[in-house]
Design a binder for these strands. Sequence first.
DNA 1: CTGAATCCGCGGGGATACTG
DNA 2: CAGTATCCCCGCGGATTCAG
Lengths: 146, 146
Amino acid sequence: MVTITAAGASELGTRAKPAFSLDDLNPYADGCPSRRLLDRIGDKWTVLVVGTLDDGPRRFSDIRRSVAGISQKMLTQTLRGLERDGLVNRTVYAEVPPRVEYELTVAGTTLLAPLKALERWSIEHFGDVSASWELYDDTHADSAES
Amino acid sequence: MVTITAAGASELGTRAKPAFSLDDLNPYADGCPSRRLLDRIGDKWTVLVVGTLDDGPRRFSDIRRSVAGISQKMLTQTLRGLERDGLVNRTVYAEVPPRVEYELTVAGTTLLAPLKALERWSIEHFGDVSASWELYDDTHADSAES
DNA sequence: CTGAATCCGCGGGGATACTG
DNA sequence: CAGTATCCCCGCGGATTCAG
């Protein structure tokens, strides 16, 4: 069913846009909900966390170790977000040392492909970009070279 | 040439890692430079700005209008970053009303593909995610339903 | 072990004004 | 038109502490 209300677009006032048609789903529009997905993808950790889940279910601490530098708070927050998005399943095992496993849903798996593509791109083109950095910084060494 | 020093990894102390081999270029490592690329990609605007450039060169104001909600400051900043990364070419025409055009480089074009894939994903799966939101919020309505 | 809750600094990023 | 410079707010996110 899923009735989509234009939450967040209401404060614009003038435009009475009750719902979004599929044609309106271009991420370049300001109030467009699909932009929220890009925002989520764009957050610092989502890409990395999802990336660690392609090998099957993993425990909280396990993921934490895989993604170097992530704090407990951010991992929890990221996982909650992904769970809310329906991209990750959270399973709690009632044991004495609590065990929680996270696993990609079917939808989550579909996201994995483009994400891995990005990952691959950043690895493959690191050399080019790094070279470009030096060139740029060299060319623009006119001010503030410290 | 591009000598890559392990900046940021030195404070780990124990591991004496002087430089990165290609095998070390996994974005999950903390100090890994390829992570910086993901960070750049992950910033709020890069995806959208690059996405507007697939139709050929565009002017500053033109891009600004296409990406709803972006401020002039952020657009400038994003474009500078992309230029430094060697993903965008900046061309200034010495005219009376100054005209500046931005255009994807070859490297920039290679990034376009995975980025468009993400864009497409966010559009295609918006329905699923939106449904998941309602389900999640409904299930977890135990606290703070306001 | 898996989290929730709190404190808080820093920087992202918007608004505005000014230059070439 | 295409920026640069400045002010300043707010929220991201790290560190720490407490709970089941």
